[in-house]
Computed example of a mutant assay.
Amino acid sequence: MPVVVTDNCRRCRFTECVAVCPVACFHVDDDMVFVDAAACIDCRACLSACPVLAIYDEDDLPDDKRHWIAINEDKAKTLPVIRFKIDPLPDAEIRRRDLGLA
């Protein structure tokens, strides 16, 4: 099963996941990243790379986050692929603290 990016990525857009992805399956907008499940090879390297625990293996996705499967699918179709790590959003560390992960 592929991985799914969820709402913890919002307002952070840390891209450590992109840096470890061997197939460039991530897409980016102004707020967060999304994964293209069709391009994901299930290596799961991104799971431990994400500093805000926003990425789940689809098999482990909590029920209240299952809607993120469709969101990732839709967004991946229209957004550009991101191949390299970029700077997180300016308030990413604040968001990380707010999530209790800093």
Results as ranks from 00 to 15, higher is better:
33 V>K: 01
61 L>E: 07
52 V>P: 00
68 W>C: 10
46 C>V: 04
60 D>R: 12
26 F>C: 00
97 R>L: 15
26 F>E: 00
56 Y>P: 07
72 N>D: 13
65 K>A: 09
55 I>Q: 01
62 P>T: 06
41 I>P: 10
77 K>Q: 14
72 N>F: 03
98 D>L: 15
72 N>V: 06
22 P>D: 02
46 C>K: 00
73 E>F: 10
48 S>G: 10
12 C>N: 08
59 D>P: 01
91 D>L: 13
93 E>D: 14
74 D>M: 10
28 V>G: 05
90 P>H: 07
42 D>N: 13
82 I>G: 00
101 L>P: 04
39 A>C: 11
92 A>Q: 05
73 E>Q: 12
92 A>H: 06
101 L>Y: 08
44 R>Y: 15
76 A>Q: 02
13 R>T: 03
61 L>W: 08
94 I>H: 09
86 I>D: 07
62 P>I: 08
4 V>A: 05
24 A>D: 15
60 D>I: 07
34 F>M: 09
9 C>Y: 02
16 E>K: 04
67 H>D: 14
70 A>I: 13
34 F>T: 03
73 E>K: 10
25 C>I: 01
84 F>C: 12
1 M>R: 15
99 L>M: 05
27 H>L: 03
100 G>D: 09
73 E>L: 08
1 M>H: 15
5 V>I: 11
74 D>E: 15
3 V>D: 03
33 V>H: 03
94 I>G: 07
97 R>Q: 12
97 R>K: 14
8 N>L: 01
100 G>T: 02
78 T>V: 15
47 L>T: 08
28 V>R: 04
30 D>H: 13
72 N>C: 13
28 V>L: 10
97 R>Y: 10
8 N>P: 12
52 V>Y: 01
16 E>D: 15
94 I>K: 13
66 R>W: 08
73 E>C: 08
83 R>F: 09
13 R>V: 04
7 D>F: 04
25 C>Y: 03
31 D>R: 11
99 L>H: 01
95 R>W: 09
46 C>I: 03
64 D>Y: 15
99 L>A: 06
68 W>K: 05
17 C>S: 05
30 D>P: 09
93 E>H: 14
70 A>N: 12
80 P>R: 12
78 T>Q: 13
76 A>C: 09
24 A>L: 06
19 A>E: 10
79 L>D: 09
2 P>K: 05
55 I>E: 01
79 L>H: 09
15 T>K: 01
21 C>H: 00
26 F>K: 00
9 C>M: 10
85 K>V: 08
35 V>Q: 01
36 D>V: 02
22 P>Q: 02
35 V>E: 00
52 V>F: 04
67 H>S: 14
21 C>W: 00
102 A>E: 07
54 A>F: 05
7 D>R: 15
43 C>N: 10
81 V>T: 13
12 C>R: 08
15 T>W: 00
56 Y>R: 02
102 A>N: 05
29 D>H: 09
33 V>F: 07
93 E>R: 11
44 R>L: 13
91 D>T: 05
55 I>T: 03
93 E>A: 12
34 F>L: 07
18 V>N: 00
4 V>T: 04
71 I>N: 08
40 C>Q: 01
30 D>S: 14
67 H>T: 15
55 I>W: 01
49 A>K: 05
62 P>Y: 07
69 I>H: 04
27 H>T: 03
8 N>Q: 09
94 I>Q: 11
80 P>N: 12
72 N>L: 04
32 M>W: 06
80 P>C: 13
51 P>S: 02
25 C>A: 13
6 T>N: 05
64 D>P: 11
